[in-house]
Design a protein around this nucleic acid. Structure first.
Lengths: 161, 161
DNA sequence: GCCAGGTGGTTGACATGTCATCAAAGCGGC
DNA sequence: GCCGCTTTGATGACATGTCAACCACCTGGC
């Protein structure tokens, strides 16, 4: 193994800052969301993704892919949300194996009630603290990293049989 | 409630990119760390923080604060790591309630074996994909957000009795 | 010195996420 | 049409994290 290239001071600062921010920002957003709307972040993400689709419904696998969740996780989570009346499972007309999740009226109300406050929190704790250039840079850099990771996954998918 | 200020296109791009990156980067780093070194990210963080202290040992509360973990979580996790022989609990000489966690020889070996690969992964999937300006910007922006959140916590701590 | 209240850490019950496995249904070659 | 293989989603066992309750000990006012 070659001598490892450790992180220099600036790199280390960025990396530690990123991890700290991730943790604190998550905690705070989750805290406020739960307090104000009674939803966890995963709840909100599911409802939000569903509410953005034209028909307020999605195939499970499609939703899982969008959210970068495993099918198993989604299935468990939807069962809990279904218990609470936020979503409902329907049969898929075009594929007998499949299911479709749909937003219920209560689910739609829940996202609509939660969204303004949640967006405001995201602004207050992140977006509004950044300059226009930083927002631009953050968008560029995160997408580059995401594309790189997605490409890596592709490669791995082909490689390992 | 005022009309919510939704995110504009650039803000949305940054926010979505951030969340996607967070998820994918985490998964990939955790995957490689487990595969190469048999450690989870929480394991690595504990070992890494301990190995950075002069004496390879810390009070539990001190470690919990540094890691932004609850005491409960730390206690549970240390029990598991202790089972595996990576750390050991000692009595605190100066405070009869307290405990101290110390790195074992095996624990030290584990971090030292894991570190080069992990740093390389962080470089490969994040740091080396960014320009010097982006690294600088990421460091600045994350620290600003962290400071803001920490200040908010302070305020809340005083406010709610 | 002693007691009231705070602090440090552990614990158990519960919520959530992961992994492996499974059944049911689709798909494709023959 | 049939059979093997894949895909979809559900499920159960397990790992991990959270929350509230708890004990032991410290600390400060009296």
């Amino acid at each position: 193994m070659d001598a490892p290239r450790w992180l220099d001071e600036r790199e280390d600062r960025a990396w530690r800052g990123y991890r700290r921010m991730r943790r604190l920002l998550d905690l705070e957003l989750a805290r406020e969301l739960m307090q104000d709307a009674g939803l966890s972040e995963p709840d909100y993400d599911v409802l939000s993704d569903l509410s953005e689709t034209p028909d307020q419904r999605l195939r499970l696998s499609e939703l899982a892919d969008r959210m970068l969740w495993s099918r198993s996780r989604l299935s468990h989570h939807l069962s809990r949300m279904q218990q609470r009346g936020l979503v409902i499972r329907e049969e898929c007309p075009s594929d007998g194996r499949g299911s479709v999740v749909a937003l219920t009226a209560a689910g739609r109300q829940a996202v609509e009630a939660a969204a303004p406050g949640h967006v405001a929190a995201v602004r207050r704790h992140l977006i509004d603290l950044l300059t226009a250039e930083e927002i631009e840079a953050l968008g560029a850099l995160t997408h580059r990293v995401v594309d790189h990771l997605a490409a890596g996954e592709q490669r791995r998918g082909r490689a390992e049989v």
